[in-house]
Simulated scan of single mutants.
Amino acid sequence: MQDLDVLRYPIGRFDYGTPIPLGETRAHIAEIDKLPIKLTELVGKWGDERLDTPYRPEGWTVRQLVHHIADSHINAYVRTKLALTEDNPTIKPYEEGEWAKLPDSQLDVALSLVILRNLHQRWVTLLDSLTETQLLRTYFHPATQRMVPLSEVIGMYAWHGEHHYQHIYRLAAREGWLEHTT
Rank of each mutant, 00 (worst) to 15 (best):
Q2H: 14
D3T: 11
L4K: 04
L7Y: 05
R8W: 00
Y9E: 02
P10G: 10
R13I: 03
R13P: 03
P19C: 07
P21R: 03
K34R: 11
L35Q: 03
I37D: 15
L39Y: 01
G47F: 01
G47N: 04
E49I: 05
R50T: 08
L51W: 02
D52I: 11
Y55T: 13
E58D: 12
H67M: 12
S72M: 07
S72N: 05
A76R: 05
V78G: 10
K81N: 09
A83Y: 10
L84W: 03
D87I: 01
N88D: 15
T90G: 02
Y94G: 10
Y94M: 11
E95N: 15
E98C: 06
W99L: 15
A100W: 08
L107F: 14
L107N: 13
D108A: 11
L113M: 10
V114R: 07
L116P: 06
R117P: 02
S129D: 02
L130F: 03
L130A: 01
Q134L: 06
R137S: 09
T138C: 14
H141P: 07
A143T: 11
A143H: 14
T144F: 13
R146T: 12
L150F: 00
S151C: 09
V153L: 12
G155M: 02
Y157N: 07
A158Y: 00
A158R: 00
W159D: 04
G161T: 09
E162K: 09
A173D: 13
T181A: 09
